[in-house]
Design a binder for these strands. Structure first.
Lengths: 199, 199, 199, 199
DNA sequence: AATGAATGAGACTTCATTCAT
DNA sequence: GATGAATGAAGTCTCATTCAT
């Protein structure tokens, strides 16, 4: 019976995610969510106290999913890590091109600026991701400034998503090598050249 | 007479921007906008046909402002360009930390995914910005793949904004040098090393 | 088996009375009643066809209880009756100060004005009470106008309840002697003085 | 223009009072109130922030009205006061028989037990009424225990209303003289007889 | 007997928009 | 140009009630 409950909750969450992407957190009405979940409006309130609670659950689920996507790097042995990560850039760009994920992320970011509860959930997950990257960079690759490098990489990945929204036709073929260079820069010890240049 | 009209419109636009940041495009009601603009609800409809028209105007104004911020690089002589741009990183990070601008941008990005009119406005401005960068990189710095380099830079800048939302306490001191390195990478001819690595 | 059923019904009735006092007949939801009765919502409908039926049962039970409270006077011998009744004023005032009973009574009175079924139940019980008083006054105390005297007493008692709601801090010490005087007036043959005054 | 506003507010208040009497505070929906006020649902919210605010306004208006009804006694010269008051009993009983007023009062009393704001409004008006009576009894009639006598009278009047609900057919002809006796008792100095009896 | 999932109507409230003044 | 009264649809949420288990 608990399984049925979980399935029902997922039904709502999936429908809600759809609607949120299509109309935004505040543009999507409970009626639309209910219809897409093939469920009565009232019954949704047996599983979620609030519309906000649905949003929070979506944020939680989506953030967790995003964190899991990074988690697979943890099992990669250290001498393959750089190679594996750079090789994954192509599919990462593809994933960023997924409008569904991107819009949901934007919505979450925007909402987190007005809803402290959302901000809290989002930041907890971000901390996990950061810690995961940081420990990889520091422990596996022996890199200094692991935090800053992490921020650089996450900036780049996050920025990619908004770039694709602003310019969907961008030429990935020529961009991807550049991204890989930045990743090498972030994943390898600074050589003297770089240091000189940055001063 | 026309000046008064323009001032009135700005009054509305400023109030609207405030409200949109605080409540989101769909969370902000015309009543709140009117009150913050010290204007009657009905009168706003003398200047804007729609709430959507207000949103569109905001998007237009905001995008133009963003483009102008980049435009100042056009007047920098070519041998100072790299230096000037990298030196500006600090204030750029500061500007990304401005919640007002960031939230407005997120809202615009999200809205552009559901409102084709908004998407159109936003993309036109993005094209301007891209063209500006592209011509700088190509004509002033003689760089190949100017489009891709532009995308890389814009990705980085855009990603910074979302990073600061997700992790407001991030240590800018150690991140900024890294960003500068990436900028050098994007603004200078690829050396053989980099090429080898990226393969 | 029937005993269990009665206990279950009482469980519901007690919970319902609680909720009705706290939220009113229309403000109390079946869900709250069910929770306070430690019973499922659906199961309540095995014992009561309706929410209205619960209300009716409450009205019945409460009215019966009120009638029983008066019934004890029946066993008092006639020459002690006046004395016993006046001596009970203190505890009567206390009982009227019981918010639970008072609110329930108000709710019942108000509901009886819109729900004929409730009105019917209530009036049947009132008739019992009236008859009880009337026969006491007439048969035991040989008083004329027993009906009117009954109404006077019941008015006074009923009015006390609303007074305590409107003015909870009222000074009972000085009020109670006055009430006793009125009771004497109602429970003793009119003397000539009174008759003269009332003309 | 302010006159129009007041008229509109009265329109709502009258419609609301009607509905509250017919369905109770919580049984009456905004839709019904709006329809009876010949006004759109939404527009009511231009005049009242809340349904609660409407209830509060009704309570205020009704209580004020009730207080005004007593206020006319203030202008009666002292040697006619007792006579005038007892002569008014007939119409008072009639007014208590007005279902509209009675139900509204019950609703108010019941609501005041759960809504502190309502309780506050109601008690302020009750204080006015009490003070009016008290000063009459003390200053005009030189009576001791003016507060207690006031409470006795108000109890009697209030109780009359609930009696008429419980027993609409009660014989007023024989009751009214009794009431007048009680009023005399409350409005005249205690004689020794009464004192003896009440001990 | 007992549960709680499920429904759809209706609760209060807010919204974008129009219109008379 | 400017106001704010006015509307009705749609918003979120709760309700009494039923039904499969």
């Amino acid at each position: 019976m608990d399984k049925r409950r979980a399935a029902r909750i997922d039904q709502v969450l999936n429908a809600a995610a759809d609607c949120f992407v299509e109309f935004g957190f505040h543009g999507a009405g409970m009626a639309k969510i209910a219809k897409r979940a093939s469920m009565s409006v009232g019954h949704i309130y047996h599983y979620f106290e609030n519309k906000e609670a649905i949003i929070a659950a979506i944020v939680d689920r989506e953030s967790e999913l995003a964190a899991e996507r990074f988690a697979e790097f943890e099992e990669v042995p250290r001498d393959e890590l750089v190679h594996v990560m750079t090789e994954r850039v192509d599919e990462m760009v593809d994933s960023k091109a997924d409008a569904f994920q991107s819009v949901l992320n934007l919505e979450i970011l925007a909402e987190s600026q007005r809803n402290p509860q959302i901000a809290c959930i989002m930041r907890q997950h971000d901390e996990e991701v950061r810690e995961l990257f940081r420990s990889m960079l520091k422990d596996k690759l022996n890199l200094p400034d692991a935090e800053a490098r992490t921020e650089l990489l996450l900036s780049l990945f996050g920025g990619l998503a908004s770039r694709i929204i602003r310019h969907p036709e961008l030429d990935r073929h020529t961009l991807i090598p550049l991204i890989k260079q930045v990743m090498h820069l972030a994943l390898e010890p600074c050589d003297k050249d770089d240091k000189r240049k940055s001063e």
